[in-house]
Simulated scan of single mutants.
Amino acid sequence: MEAVLFNGTELKLSYVKNYPMPKITNDTDVIVKVAYSGICGTDLHIIAGNFPATKGTIAMGHEICGVVHEAGKKSIFKKGQNVVVDPNNSCNLCDNCRKGKYQYCLVGGNNDTIGIWKDGGWAQYVVVPQFQVYALPDGITLEQGGVCEPYSCVAHGFDRASPLLIGSKILIAGAGIIGNLWVTTLHHHGHREVTVSEMSKTRLDIVKKMDTGYRLVTPDVLAEEKQLYDVIIDCTGVGKVMEINFNYLATGGKYVLFGCCPATHEATIHPFQIYQKELTIVGVKINPFSFPNAISWLKAFGDRYLNYEKLGVKTYKLSEYEQAVGDLKAGVIAKALFKV
């Protein structure tokens, strides 16, 4: 089968036509014929060597949507079902997992992620345990399911940041795909006092297509006006951005650190500000048990918010992986998806 492989030792990608087909080894395994698989910002960090991943060679891709190709004899899934895959799992034994917080698991969580530590969705087929598979209900297309995994992360972030009171002044820093998904989420939930800050005017033009009426600015405007915000959602994954934007929090404000920063990034903040303003810093890690929320959001959002062109999503063949990664790095698109 076709696949885009990542060599974790050499930090290189390659396209092959003869990667072995996955096989069912457990009675509850499911083989998914991949329809869409995304390239995440985390994937770019992995390729650059800035995020822990396998040292072996695997098909990457942890954002997976497709159709059941084959199911183990004890699986609840049937051939032909449209499904999405939660790439993260739990050990079910440690204190964190038994408290329902497998994002902290030292064995599961993102320490055993499909597409990071073992074969994922940058291939025509992938095998996964059935407990990591969710059926897509009627009314949600496979195309819409292609953004389910990143929405599941946003859903967890939304829960962590809540309550987000209507009328709050909110700043979204960064208009890559995650920033855009936050734009759709906040707008759907009734928020209108929202500013989006992004260095790339190309990306700001993409946000305009979503027709939310949100204020769109470049970071220099924030520095000039020094407006304060009740909530800041950082989707940049850049430590220096947090250092700067932390000063724009109003009293009682929340800083939601959503973008995944490389481990080498640092930011300097003044603890006195946290004391004086009673500020809250909210970290968000992966998507524990938030796929049901994300699927419900997809059904509620529909084409109003899930149109690929409006979101800045472009699809590519697996063989076009170099162009896909290049376009994403150049910022001419918000999101690259393999249409397999």
Score class of each variant (00 low, 15 high):
residue 195 T to K: 10
residue 195 T to L: 12
residue 196 V to Q: 07
residue 197 S to L: 07
residue 199 M to W: 07
residue 199 M to A: 14
residue 199 M to Y: 10
residue 200 S to C: 11
residue 200 S to H: 06
residue 201 K to C: 09
residue 202 T to D: 13
residue 204 L to F: 08
residue 205 D to L: 01
residue 207 V to I: 15
residue 208 K to W: 03
residue 208 K to S: 12
residue 209 K to I: 01
residue 209 K to D: 06
residue 209 K to M: 09
residue 211 D to I: 00
residue 212 T to K: 10
residue 213 G to F: 11
residue 213 G to E: 10
residue 213 G to R: 13
residue 213 G to S: 09
residue 215 R to P: 00
residue 216 L to I: 05
residue 216 L to T: 05
residue 217 V to H: 04
residue 218 T to N: 09
residue 219 P to G: 03
residue 220 D to E: 15
residue 221 V to H: 14
residue 222 L to T: 06
residue 224 E to Y: 03
residue 224 E to F: 03
residue 224 E to C: 00
residue 225 E to K: 15
residue 226 K to F: 00
residue 226 K to P: 00
residue 227 Q to G: 02
residue 230 D to S: 05
residue 230 D to Q: 08
residue 230 D to V: 01
residue 233 I to F: 06
residue 234 D to W: 08
residue 235 C to Y: 01
residue 236 T to Y: 06
residue 236 T to W: 03
residue 236 T to E: 06
residue 236 T to K: 08
residue 237 G to R: 05
residue 238 V to F: 08
residue 239 G to F: 09
residue 243 E to T: 01
residue 244 I to C: 00
residue 244 I to S: 12
residue 245 N to G: 08
residue 245 N to H: 14
residue 246 F to R: 03
residue 247 N to E: 15
residue 248 Y to D: 12
residue 250 A to V: 00
residue 250 A to E: 11
residue 251 T to A: 01
residue 251 T to K: 00
residue 253 G to I: 06
residue 254 K to E: 02
residue 255 Y to K: 06
residue 257 L to Q: 08
residue 257 L to K: 09
residue 258 F to A: 10
residue 258 F to C: 08
residue 260 C to A: 12
residue 260 C to Y: 04
residue 260 C to S: 12
residue 261 C to T: 12
residue 264 T to D: 14
residue 265 H to V: 03
residue 267 A to R: 05
residue 267 A to L: 08
residue 268 T to F: 05
residue 268 T to M: 13
residue 268 T to D: 10
residue 269 I to S: 03
residue 269 I to W: 02
residue 270 H to M: 11
residue 270 H to E: 14
